[in-house]
Design a protein around this nucleic acid. Structure first.
Lengths: 200, 200
DNA sequence: TCTTTTAGTTAACGGTGTTAACCTCTGTTA
DNA sequence: TAACAGAGGTTAACACCGTTAACTAAAAGA
């Protein structure tokens, strides 16, 4: 690895931070541990990030980008809008199950628990909503979905999915309920909420 | 206030803890602050609680009980199952908006961020699901709701609502979307997901 | 060559959860 | 009545935390 290929300290910090987060969870995610991971002093993190929240925001941004990328791929594989909606939901779920800690970084942090997620980054995060919005619009055009405000609906769709995965990941499901069944049922209900109601 | 009316230290700690949590948020919720509030040493908290998580769990239990009580009241005020479902959703939303910090205590804490919420307490917490389950069963009997597994459906209903309020409270809504409108739309979609589909 | 800038360091501050050792009452028992 | 035991607190300390200030060494520019 020659000089130009070497990762900048900023990149190294991000890598180390991701590693610590995935390995130990947010609760044990500390600047000193991150710094120790790359044999550097904890204070040097401040040369590249405003503070701890700023670093976390960077990880959030990354995780969101990854999720969005996967959603984009999946949605391109199907044709009709209802199937697309289902594909989106399933990919969303699958991401949360495969990368629970990363998923939780995206969401766990709420209003007063952390500095507001900065506006510039938030814009990128909206990509996911755009994908859903487009699918909903498509569905309206082809007469399968009744929805006068697709962007608004995209947010409700997303929120519902998040709620479902949040319950699963925080392990709040009743023992008597099987996780997979729960997810299936939820996806089914969520999609039904957007389908046009006609006689069967 | 005579001796027998005096609150036990345990109760005083819980009161102080609730006060600190509501005033400063979970991030600034520390044992030393709680102790300072009632002029007692921080370590004496350990005489009444196993650790910080245990104390938080107690606050969670309390908040859940309050929410459940309000839901029970509201659901008794309406008659038909669909209206009951709507009343439940609205009361849930209203609680989250009125007591955001308490609401967040109920949910914010996820699997690896905190010791698992203990089983005995979890049982009490299920009351809310029972209420929803009963309403759904009622709806099935009167032919308004198509649902073969009401308990499972109660969990999906709850999860979706949580997702919606989680997005609202973490202030992740697009500027262009009005909060109230978002909530209305979401409740509408969620309930539609449980209604029997017949020709209009 | 002198000077400024950059990129890092160490030391320290005030805070955290938690544990160990101690103290001081109160009630019981010999 | 004296000795004891336990309950219910205390103080001191440990190991960690995010963050700031002051310093240093090397590189870059003049």
């Amino acid at each position: 690895m020659n000089k130009t290929e070497e990762k900048s300290l900023k990149e190294q910090i991000i890598d180390a931070a991701r590693k610590v987060l995935l390995a130990k969870g947010y609760r044990n995610f500390s600047l000193r541990k991150i710094a120790g991971e790359i044999d550097v002093s904890a204070t040097s993190i401040y040369l590249h990030f405003e503070n701890k929240d700023d670093l976390v925001h960077t990880l959030m941004e990354e995780a969101i980008a990854r999720l969005n990328k996967q959603l984009e791929q999946k949605v391109a594989e199907v044709d009709d809008p209802i199937s697309k909606l289902e594909a989106l939901a399933r990919e969303y779920v699958s991401f949360a199950l495969k990368h629970p800690r990363e998923y939780q970084v995206i969401y766990l942090i709420s209003s007063d628990e952390m500095t507001r997620y900065p506006k510039e980054k938030f814009r990128k995060a909206r990509k996911g909503y755009e994908i859903v919005t487009d699918v909903l619009k498509e569905g309206v055009e082809s007469g399968l979905i009744a929805e006068s405000r697709p962007r608004l609906a995209a947010y409700t769709f997303w929120a519902q999915l998040h709620g479902v995965m949040s319950v699963v990941l925080s392990k709040r499901l009743d023992n008597r309920i099987e996780q997979e069944e729960f997810i299936e049922e939820a996806i089914d209900h969520i999609i039904k909420g957007y389908q046009l109601r006609t006689s069967l």
